[in-house]
Simulated scan of single mutants.
Amino acid sequence: MRISDVLRRKGDDVVTIRSDASVAELLDLLADRGIGAVVVSDADGTVDGIVSERDVVRHLRGSTEPLPAVPVGTIMTTEVATCRLDDDLETLARTMTERRVRHLPVVADGRLVGIVSIGDVVKQRLGELQDERDSLVDYVQGGG
């Protein structure tokens, strides 16, 4: 299964935020959209960083300044792991596990085209397991 297949099923909508937006704006966006991470993009289609709930927590732990006024660019992760449309799901899952990240932006020709979460990976894998189960049940009930 390729990342392009995952995006075809889930859609390619990606929520982004500018690096100069405040953390208060970020928190509103995360809560309103029910998501855990946002791609930081100062120009249409670029991946300048990614900011997650985890980044907010890390900043809270070590900061004395009022967090809501802090720019997103201050707390975002700048070394962003990305994937390509032709990457396979197993490689993506391995990257997420090794890098300890739950969201990977999908990039094609240097432009942001989607995002895949660990939830997308699990959902896809569960679907594959169900298909395998159904095939085995059909085989057994069909007498071989």
Rank of each mutant, 00 (worst) to 15 (best):
V6D: 08
R58E: 14
L92N: 07
G119Y: 00
P105D: 07
M76D: 05
S19G: 14
A108R: 04
L7T: 04
L104V: 13
V107F: 06
V56R: 14
T82N: 09
V116T: 05
L112S: 05
L136R: 07
V47F: 08
V113A: 06
R84P: 00
D138A: 15
I75F: 07
A31D: 12
A108N: 02
V137Q: 11
L104T: 06
E79I: 00
M96W: 02
Y139T: 13
T97I: 09
E90H: 05
R94C: 03
I50F: 07
P71N: 01
L29T: 04
V70N: 10
R102M: 02
V14C: 01
H103S: 02
R133A: 10
I17G: 04
G144A: 07
A81E: 06
S135T: 06
G142E: 06
T82Y: 02
D20R: 11
E53H: 14
S135G: 08
D120I: 03
R2V: 12
I17V: 11
V122Y: 09
L7G: 04
D28W: 08
A93Q: 03
G45L: 10
V6K: 04
V140E: 00
R61G: 10
G49L: 08
I50W: 05
V101Y: 04
G49N: 05
L129C: 12
L126S: 15
L30V: 07
M1E: 11
D12S: 15
V122S: 09
D131V: 09
D120Y: 04
I75P: 00
E53V: 14
V140P: 03
E132Y: 11
V38P: 05
E90G: 00
Q124R: 13
I35Q: 00
V113M: 04
L136W: 07
L89S: 09
L29W: 06
Y139D: 11
G114P: 00
